[in-house]
Amino acid sequence: MLKVIKNRMEQGCKTSKYPKEPIQLYKRFRGMPRINASCSQSVIQQCADICPQDCIDTKNKTIDLGRCTFCGQCEVQSKGEFVLFSENFELGAASREHLITGGSLPALAEHSKQHFKKLFGRSLQLRQVSAAGCNSCEADTNVLNTPFFDLSRFGIDFVASPRHADGIHVTGPISRNMTQALLDTYEAVPSPKVVIASGCCSISGGPFYGSDEVVGDLNKLIPVDLYIPGCPPHPLTTLHALLQFFK
């Protein structure tokens, strides 16, 4: 018992004050890209050529955050001339097109569906479905339950049964072998329900795009309401997206 108390005192309270107070992530973190539209076409072309996800559009000078893994290769290649990754982790989007960005995203809160805010603003229960996620997405979703993020204080919880859920949160490129189980889980959630695609895998197939063993895009199966880009999304990215979209 004494040890429990001693450890309790040593640990103290570690819960973050976000969103009331901003959090500064360490500078090496790659968040929202800043794009220099006046960059020379040849440099943009070089970036597009080395981009492993083929997500740079040279004509419109945009990056598709639904495909990007935030590997940082384009930043290095262009020596920051075309892209610079900021520490801004607020990346959620309400439509697939918004993710194709020239350097900014529309305010998520304004694009969320108002009836969702009314229905789920005070209490949101989600069923997480990993459909061939590599376990980074899953782990950094799970981490929202640890004391630092403490998701429950916002009335948001991950639940075991789809019957108790208001929606599903999907990670992974949706392997052929998980498609049926994913659809069954979706079916089991009572309507009205929310669908969240988390990580570039569920948005576009991520690193596995083109494989004939994956579906690669959740929208092909069920309509997605909220997109959370990243590989994996930072827990704060997920937290921000959930709060903006539902609160």
């Binding site: 492993p52 590997c71 392997s175 596995f208």
Partner: peptide, 24 residues
């Protein structure tokens, strides 16, 4: 259930995709 066909992908995709696939 998690099968993504990685071993089959590796020889057929461009090299630039290799590290992205392997770290996932």
């Amino acid at each position: 259930y998690q099968h993504r066909g990685i071993e089959k992908m590796m020889p057929s995709v461009p090299q630039k995709r290799w590290p992205i696939i392997c770290e996932s």
